[in-house]
């Protein structure tokens, strides 16, 4: 029906997260209609990004320079490492400007069922960073899912010999959350982690 170029475009777009074959066709058509204003700039942006952006050899963050701008920033505290699953999580932390230390991006979480083991994740380099000394605290900011928590526990095991304080983010009542709307699991977790006023 279509030329091979269009089919290939649709096929590739269909591999993007959140897009299936139907939305891929819609996106392809939209791009073709906005050839000058969208498609060509997008193509250039994709090519530039593919050429220039690499994973930081220290923390795994994505940036055009290596080490990344966070690792290279001397004003950020190198003694604090916040471990996150994905770059998206790092971006979320940075959006909130809540953390002034450095990061370590694992690139996912341990999942035996998906064939993701420690070798597939950016774990060896974290152990090396901690072993090199100068780290005062490692903060586990993995997701509050079974896999995320298993990963945090695994890292704690791996880092135990270095005797660096390990912490994890609190689980519980979301800020602005109404208790009435919380599921029992979250409420029970929040209850266990209550603290003195």
């Amino acid at each position: 029906m279509n030329g091979p170029e269009i089919e290939r475009l649709i096929q590739l777009l269909g591999r993007l997260p959140g897009l299936g074959p139907r939305s891929a066709r819609r996106v392809a058509l939209h791009l073709l209609k906005k050839r000058e204003t969208l498609m060509q700039p997008l193509g250039t942006a994709l090519a530039d990004a593919a050429r220039a952006i690499r994973a930081c050899s220290v923390c795994g963050n994505l940036d055009t320079i290596d080490p990344c701008s966070i690792c290279a920033d001397s004003r950020r505290d190198a003694g604090l490492i916040c471990v996150v699953e994905d770059v998206g999580d790092l971006w979320a932390m940075e959006r909130g400007r809540i953390f002034s230390g450095r990061y370590h991006v694992l690139g996912g979480s341990l999942s035996a069922l998906d064939g993701i083991g420690p070798e597939e994740l950016n774990i060896g380099s974290l152990v090396k960073r901690v072993a090199a000394g100068g780290v005062r605290e490692v903060i586990m900011a993995t997701n509050a899912t079974v896999d995320g928590q298993t990963t945090a526990h695994y890292l704690a095991e791996r880092l135990a010999e270095h005797e660096v304080p390990l912490t994890r983010l609190a689980h519980g009542v979301p800020v602005g959350g109404e208790l009435d709307w919380l599921d029992d699991g979250t409420l029970a977790t929040a209850f266990k982690a209550r603290r003195a006023l």
């Binding site: 341990l110 999942s111 035996a112 069922l113 083991g117 420690p118 079974v146 298993t150 990963t151 526990h153 695994y154 095991e157 791996r158």
Partner: peptide
């Protein structure tokens, strides 16, 4: 977690930390 542990066992994985977690 039980399924993941079974998978590790059947894959012949011997990483003690992963099992512990």
């Amino acid at each position: 977690a039980q399924r993941q542990r079974s998978r590790l066992l059947s894959d012949g994985n011997r990483d003690p930390h992963w099992f512990t977690a």
